[in-house]
Amino acid sequence: MDNKEQLFKTLISSSKNSIYRVCFSFLDHTEDVNDLQQEIYIELWKSLDRFKGKSAWNTFIYRIAINTAIRFKTKLSNYNVLKPELSDLTDASMVTYPTDEHEEQLKSLQKAIKMLPDRERILISLLLEDLSYKEIASILNISVGHVGVRIARVKEKLKKLMNHEE
């Protein structure tokens, strides 16, 4: 196994859950989530040689995940670009959840996130991945202040949506 392959496997094993959750927050159907995940891994491999160490690995991987997710969504035909449809969330092919209390809460959170526009879904999922404002700002290359303003708005929206869910 060469160095690149070794590095790739290490990066995947350390970030696969985060990548999965970002994909999951961004898409509504399980089969799309798996396809997107695979595309992100392929893009990560293709981009590895371009990593110059100017940013953290975390930043590098999240940028690839976000860009690939955006491109993936543009490829989905007949996708409503302006807002997610509530009907999408009750589609039969949606992910199914177990029913204990913890899972119910998780379901409620995920459902609320999926009701946000794409840009806000990404932002909140980065926050929930426990990234700091500074890290999010670095990934998106926007000011920390801007991240703060956006996140404050998204959190309020999410709170309302979750309360509504309950």
């Binding site: 392959e5 790739f8 496997k9 995947i12 696969k16 859950n17 990548i19 999965y20 959750r21 999951f24 798996n34 995940q37 695979q38 891994y41 392929i42 491999w45 913890h102 809460q105 998780l106 959170l109 995920q110 999922s125 929930l128 991945e129 426990d130």
Partner: peptide, 17 residues
């Protein structure tokens, strides 16, 4: 809560690389 949702699928590296 969010981070408790993990990916349980096996990644097929033999196909991806």
């Amino acid at each position: 809560l969010w981070q408790s949702h993990t990916d349980n699928s096996d990644i097929d590296m033999t196909h991806i690389i």
